[in-house]
Amino acid sequence: MISLLSYPFIQNAFLAGTCIAIVAAVTGYFLLLRGLTFAGHALPNIGFAGAAGAVLLGLDPLFGLLAFTIGAAIGIGLLGRNLRERDLAIGILMTFALALGLLFLSLYSGYAERVYSILFGTILGISRLDVLLSFGVSLLILVSILLLFRPLLFSSYDPEVAEARGVPVRLLAVAFLVLVALTIAIAVQIVGALLVFTLLVGPAATAGRLALRPGAVILLAIALGLLYTWLGILLAVLSGTIPVSFFIAFLSFIVYLPVRLIAPRWQRRPQQPGLLPAAGAGLSQQASAR
């Protein structure tokens, strides 16, 4: 085990994986809070089209990934708050992007390995440069979230009051989604476009059912994200052939499942005797008052 860690490519995987697990958990928490999980699913797929386009043009897929995810993030951020309409628009945008990706793939006559790695990740083929890039971008994302923290939280829970209190709600929505796009761009190299969603939503969804306040949810989500990523890399290395993304998604699922089943315990209201007693009388009066 210790000897495994001495391999540079495994060190790189752990270092990059650590950065990505942390930022994915933090941005994932806000994605859940803002009801943007579908956007979290759509953005990597849109990014895949960009990456495929970049490969077709002979560029680094990362550039295509960044261009498409950031462009789509700004678009989604400007769509506004109407959830149903927004998700419809995101869905149509995503399928269009997937179609583009398919077109680029069919036009590309080269080696499909690069495209495959965009879809499923290549954590064990990560260079030291990739690690530095992941670290730099992660740091940028975390510092940005720290700066935006309170207004972002406020506007996630209650956009109307936040707006009235002078919070630039729409600007924050766009800025946040750009941070999500950056997270996805660096996470894709590890878990791949198809399973980024796991690292974004899995830890935060589980943590949200266990912890009772925002700071605790975020810290727990980070811990879970790190656990899934580290264990996933370890298991992938030990297994030899099974990809990391499988293990990460698998771990995320088997932790979420029991938590989801036990969670009703938290959702039930504890008894508070003598506090704000409900109306015993007045049923008929209430009926007449409406």
């Binding site: 309170r150 207004p151 939280l153 829970y157 936040a162 209190r165 919070v167």
Partner: peptide, 11 residues
Amino acid sequence: FGLDGHRWGPG
């Protein structure tokens, strides 16, 4: 939130 939710930074 009513006290400092609009302020920048983590607080």
